[in-house]
Amino acid sequence: MTALIEARGLTILRPGGLETVLRDVDFRIDPQEIVTVVGPNGSGKSSLIRALLGHMPLAAGQVARKAGLRIGYVPQRVQLDTTIPMTVRRFLSLPRRVGDDMAAQVLARTGVGGLQSRQLTQLSGGQFQRVLLARALLHDPHLLVLDEPTQGLDQPGIVAFYQLIEEVRRQTGAAVLMVSHDLLVVMRASDRVICLNGHVCCEGTPQHVSTAPEYRALFGAGSEGTLALYQHHHDHDHDHDHGAACAHPHHHAEAS
């Protein structure tokens, strides 16, 4: 298979099996592609991620992952016991120990070089997210999966983090799958956006999704103006046709 992950007819039920979380979802992500999943609270975004990673049972459908696929995962929440001292360097070696050179390299790549001896409790929100990203990069993943990676960051921090994601993709060649509520800036780096609300409402380039009736119905009549669309340059092509309501050939979003 050429896709890193591909799902067909994916359906997920809530525990107890009485309520559908997602129904009949088709999904794929290709090498070096950045895909962002947006949707309101309770729309099934995190459930989709967990299903794609194999962490959630399927009521129907199937998920195929490319043989030997390495995935780096940044979860939505990380619970830390603040009573236990934990340096950044120690955190990077859980659960598998890594060498000092590798630790220094990934921290430098994510913009927090030199923080090895800092306690996790002393980090700012933005620094902690970059440490989490560094940890996800430790084993040279083919795919980075980021579930609400900028939760709790202020607007400048959010923009800086997405700029970092673009740079990491450029340097490593890893594909990136993001889930986010950050509609003001989330489209900046995306090749493709999937709007989810229990099913795929619409899908396509950032510019097209931002003007799709299905998107505006979820996020408000004025929502087409809330997506900060930037000129997006890359040297690879994606030509998907998933049959979604607003799927179209890829082209660049214009600055707004």
Rank of each mutant, 00 (worst) to 15 (best):
A174C: 10
A247P: 05
E214I: 05
V193T: 15
A189P: 11
H251Y: 09
S223A: 15
V179W: 00
H181T: 09
R216A: 08
A247E: 15
R216P: 01
S180Q: 03
Q231P: 14
H252V: 12
L196G: 07
H252G: 10
M187A: 15
T172S: 09
E224K: 11
M187K: 07
Y162N: 00
G204I: 11
R188C: 02
I158D: 00
C195E: 10
V193H: 04
G198C: 10
Q207I: 03
V159S: 02
V200A: 05
H251N: 13
V209Q: 08
A212C: 15
G204C: 09
G225E: 14
A217Y: 01
A247K: 04
V179T: 10
Y230T: 15
A212V: 09
V168W: 00
R169Q: 12
H242P: 06
A245D: 13
D241K: 05
H250T: 13
H234E: 12
Q155G: 02
P249E: 12
H181Q: 12
G152T: 05
S223N: 11
T211I: 13
Y162W: 03
E166G: 13
Y230G: 04
Y230F: 04
G157W: 00
L164K: 03
E203M: 10
H233Y: 07
H248I: 14
D239T: 13
H252E: 14
H250F: 04
H238F: 07
G152Q: 03
T226V: 15
M187C: 13
F161N: 01
R170L: 10
T205V: 11
D154G: 00
H251R: 14
Y230R: 14
Y215C: 06
D154C: 02
V176A: 13
P206T: 09
C195H: 07
M187P: 07
I194Y: 06
V193M: 15
L196T: 10
R170H: 10
D182E: 15
A189K: 04
Y230P: 01
D191C: 05
